[in-house]
């Protein structure tokens, strides 16, 4: 079954084919469940003019924030981007474009993109700046706006475990956008904590079937915590 073996052994191989001006869909919520090594590899490759679709843009010096350092990102499609100074600076200088997208709409855009659905209607954003210029249609007396789905040249995903065939499982809330991102890339690359042999993962417990996955690489993760709040500090 060598044809199904998706495992690659280097980050160069994992991100091979990435070119300037491509669109990358990235899993992760804040710094939770982000493909740390793949992001570092994109920084190393230095591609410019990238459109990155991700709920957030990391923080200064970590996660997708790394790609701001050499101005590799032309446009971000995100729901919330307030966590890094460099982002703010490039936005105010006009060096970076942002398309703010409601979080649920963003997830659905990825899901629909991966599922071959070009657009969908949602009540989210109707009557707000998000709905400006979008088609409005009424269903059962309620107005909805049309949102177009998203696909990427690459999807970069962080999973917990994958088998060699690319079947993936996520751990806890590090799942977040990763399963949708995995479906929406022309080339989907998954960085995992552990690679196992086919058959070791219980088939019904697999979150992302290997059919969506092109490359799997074993990473090592810092797993930085953005807001460490402990029980006794809780207000």
């Amino acid at each position: 079954m060598a044809g199904f073996d998706k495992v690659v052994s280097s980050y160069e191989e994992a991100m091979q084919g990435l070119e300037d001006n491509m669109t990358i869909i990235a899993g992760g919520f804040g710094l939770c469940g982000i493909p740390e090594g793949l992001i570092e590899q994109i920084k190393k490759m230095g591609n410019k003019g990238l459109t990155v679709v991700s709920n957030n843009c990391g923080v200064d010096g970590f996660g997708l924030g790394l790609l701001l350092e050499d101005k590799q990102i032309k446009k971000m499609v995100s729901s919330y981007v307030g966590e890094n100074a460099l982002f703010e600076q490039q936005l105010l200088n006009g060096e970076l474009e942002v398309e703010l997208t409601p979080q649920g709409t963003l997830a659905e855009k990825m899901r629909a993109g991966g599922a071959g659905i070009p657009a969908f209607y949602t009540a989210t954003g109707y009557g707000t700046p998000v709905g400006d210029g979008k088609e409005v249609k009424e269903f059962n007396g309620r107005p909805y706006i049309m949102e177009e789905s998203i696909t990427g040249d690459f999807a970069i995903v962080k999973a917990w475990k994958a088998d060699r065939y690319g079947n993936c499982m996520y751990r806890h809330t590090a799942m977040n956008f990763n399963p949708m991102a995995a479906t929406a890339g022309k080339i989907t690359v998954v960085e995992v904590e552990e690679i196992v042999e086919p058959g070791e993962l219980e088939p019904s417990q697999i979150h992302t079937p290997g059919i969506y996955v092109n490359r799997v690489i074993k990473g090592s993760f810092e797993k930085r915590i953005e807001r460490r709040v402990l029980a006794k500090e809780a207000k």
Binding site: S78, S79, Y80, V81, G82, E88, L91, L92, L100, P102, Q103, G104, T105, T124, G125, T128, V130
Partner: peptide, 11 residues
């Protein structure tokens, strides 16, 4: 003011 985004509030 700097616009950080709506997160999930609109949904």
């Amino acid at each position: 003011k700097l616009i950080k985004g709506m997160g999930g509030a609109m949904d």
